[in-house]
Amino acid sequence: MLKVQSLNIRYADRTIVSDFSLDVNEGEVVSIIGPNGSGKSTILKAVSRMIPCVSGRVCIADQEIRSLSTKQVSQMLCMLCQKNVSPSDMTVEELVGYGRIPHKKWYERLDAEDYKVVHWALEQTGMMEFKDRLIVSLSGGEAQKAWLAMALAQRPKVLLLDEPTTYLDIAHQLEVLELVRRLNRELKLTVIMVLHDLNHASAYSDRVCVIKNGDKHVFGKPKDVFTMELIRSVYGVETEIQQMPESASPRIHVLKKFYEKSEG
């Protein structure tokens, strides 16, 4: 569904991401993890064409996005950033309606069919009862679900989420991730998300891509990726890995920061 080939990204004279490749299957949930500053969010921005890349290719459904118009890309892919901002007087329904813009001509208004999609998206995310509320009046978890509804109304094939649980308490983090997983399974939506919490990445991902210093360190199933050695080398912390039954993902227990022993 989504193929990233040899992506290179630079800011000024500094290489942020080097020769990055990723192949994501249709209907798969892939989490990108890694230390702060490793290039996780930068990769999503390049994939969504928010920022340019020096070289490399990004293809969705075998179509290179550089050859597509912005409208065509928006019909296939949607990205939600860490912090999304809306006008202070915008309602939830109005926000979700913006998800229909890629499917309209510039002079067309939303019609009855568009509102069917908008209301479907609100129902999917449990936000129908909030449709007349102002976005600014919502809690963090409610607002995140409103933005997810807007993304659903866009009817993309691929959903990119940059740290979707940022600023949320534990209960709302789990609520948002459960919603993302349900939408993935029921709608066959391909999801690529940047996460910081290793246990969230383990529990809600089909595969995990570990980034270190702008390079792909390892990519595979959570049970294969999350080892004490890998977490020590990437994050510099000691952990215990609780291997669950074969059908479940491992649980990571962080113990302490790792310090290499000096010789002599």
Rank of each mutant, 00 (worst) to 15 (best):
1 M>N: 09
5 Q>N: 14
6 S>F: 06
7 L>K: 13
7 L>D: 02
11 Y>Q: 13
17 V>D: 05
19 D>A: 12
23 D>N: 15
23 D>C: 03
24 V>S: 03
25 N>P: 01
28 E>Q: 14
30 V>G: 13
33 I>N: 08
34 G>T: 08
44 L>F: 00
45 K>R: 13
45 K>H: 09
46 A>M: 07
46 A>F: 01
47 V>D: 01
48 S>N: 08
49 R>C: 01
53 C>K: 15
54 V>A: 11
56 G>I: 06
60 I>T: 06
62 D>H: 14
63 Q>R: 15
65 I>R: 06
67 S>R: 15
78 C>S: 15
86 S>W: 00
91 T>S: 13
97 G>H: 00
98 Y>N: 01
101 I>L: 02
102 P>D: 00
104 K>D: 08
105 K>V: 04
106 W>I: 08
107 Y>I: 06
109 R>F: 11
109 R>Q: 09
111 D>H: 09
113 E>I: 06
115 Y>S: 06
117 V>K: 15
117 V>A: 10
119 H>K: 08
123 E>G: 12
132 D>Q: 03
134 L>W: 12
136 V>S: 14
138 L>P: 04
140 G>Q: 11
142 E>V: 02
143 A>I: 01
145 K>N: 13
148 L>T: 12
148 L>K: 08
150 M>V: 00
152 L>R: 05
157 K>T: 13
168 L>T: 10
170 I>V: 08
171 A>H: 15
172 H>L: 00
180 V>P: 12
182 R>T: 10
185 R>I: 07
186 E>P: 12
186 E>T: 15
191 V>N: 06
195 L>Y: 06
209 C>S: 12
209 C>E: 05
214 G>H: 04
215 D>W: 08
221 K>R: 14
222 P>V: 09
227 T>K: 11
227 T>H: 11
232 R>P: 15
236 G>T: 15
237 V>P: 11
238 E>N: 15
242 Q>S: 09
243 Q>M: 14
245 P>H: 09
247 S>R: 13
249 S>W: 07
251 R>N: 15
253 H>N: 06
253 H>P: 03
254 V>N: 07
258 F>H: 14
264 G>Q: 03
